[in-house]
Simulated assay, not measured.
Amino acid sequence: MMIFREHRAILLYLKFIQIIFTIIVLTTELVQYVVFSSLKADSPDIIAVNQFINNEYKSIKILDNIVFLLNLITLGAYVFNFKKIWNKGPYLCLELFLAALWFTSAIGNLDPVYGRNPAQTCSSAITSSLTIICSTWITSVVFCWLNMILLIISVFVTWRVGQEKRKGIYHKPTVKPEVKNRTSQRQSVLFKQGLENPDKSQPVMLESGIKPLMLVQLANT
């Protein structure tokens, strides 16, 4: 079984990917806003766009973007102070908080699905403006839920690391039997040679490297 506390790069890589996905989501949200703001009142798709992005959805998007930006800042600070956070934690409460925030925003981003038919609206697009809004919305939804999955994985990894630290679980390197026997034989030979030919000026270091053995003292006892 993998010991997660010995593979801190896993959590670090997860945070880097989460930052990339968050940037992608924020970029798509920005593109949606720019395209929507540039639509003119006489645009052939203005009615469809207003049905797709109604006043309620606009309010949700403001909250979503605040959460996305807050997550990005928090993740950046997390990566910047990762070594300190890893040594002291990592903090499960923080991971749960980020996952909960992102989950509410991911649900909110699905608002056009409830009560409206985005597929039908997008398929009937006449101008490129509505097509861009639809494609960026789909991209945003996909990466929102991909990031949600990564956050859940982060919560699991953080929980496992905490469990391993509390239980004192770590990897104990094992020595192969043949290596152990060979080392023991070499130590025996060195020990015998030291007793037969003691050199009072040179201590002998056992191959195990634990501590020097003064063969002269052993020979005189």
Rank of each mutant, 00 (worst) to 15 (best):
A125Q: 04
T121P: 11
G76W: 04
I60G: 01
G168W: 03
K84N: 08
Y170C: 09
N87E: 12
Y57C: 05
S124V: 12
C134I: 09
I60Y: 05
V155F: 03
N54V: 02
V79D: 05
V161M: 03
L39G: 06
W137T: 09
L101A: 01
T139E: 08
Q163K: 14
S43T: 04
L96P: 03
L130A: 02
G168N: 03
F103V: 00
C134Y: 04
F156G: 04
I133M: 06
A48D: 11
A100M: 01
G162W: 04
V141M: 10
L94W: 07
P118S: 05
S140P: 00
W102V: 00
L92C: 08
I169D: 03
I149G: 13
L110A: 06
T104F: 01
N87F: 02
K58R: 13
Q51K: 11
Q163R: 12
F82A: 01
N117P: 09
L70M: 15
I47R: 11
S43E: 09
L101H: 01
D64V: 11
N55F: 10
P173S: 14
T131G: 10
P173H: 10
G162P: 00
V113L: 14
A99H: 11
L130G: 05
G89T: 05
S43Q: 08
T131N: 12
R166C: 03
A106F: 00
K84W: 06
Y114Q: 11
T131E: 15
A119C: 08
N87K: 12
R160M: 13
P44I: 00
F143G: 07
A48P: 01
I46G: 02
Q51V: 06
I126Y: 12
R166K: 15
L75A: 06
N147V: 00
I85Y: 13
F97G: 08
I126P: 14
G162Q: 05
M148G: 15
H171Y: 12
G89I: 05
Y170D: 12
M148A: 15
W102F: 02
C93H: 14
F143I: 09
Q120Y: 10
K40W: 02
N65T: 14
I85R: 15
P44F: 03
K167F: 05
T136R: 09
Y170G: 12
F68I: 02
R116M: 11
I53W: 03
R160Q: 11
S129V: 05
K83V: 05
A48E: 07
L130D: 07
N147W: 01
E95Q: 10
F52K: 01
R116V: 12
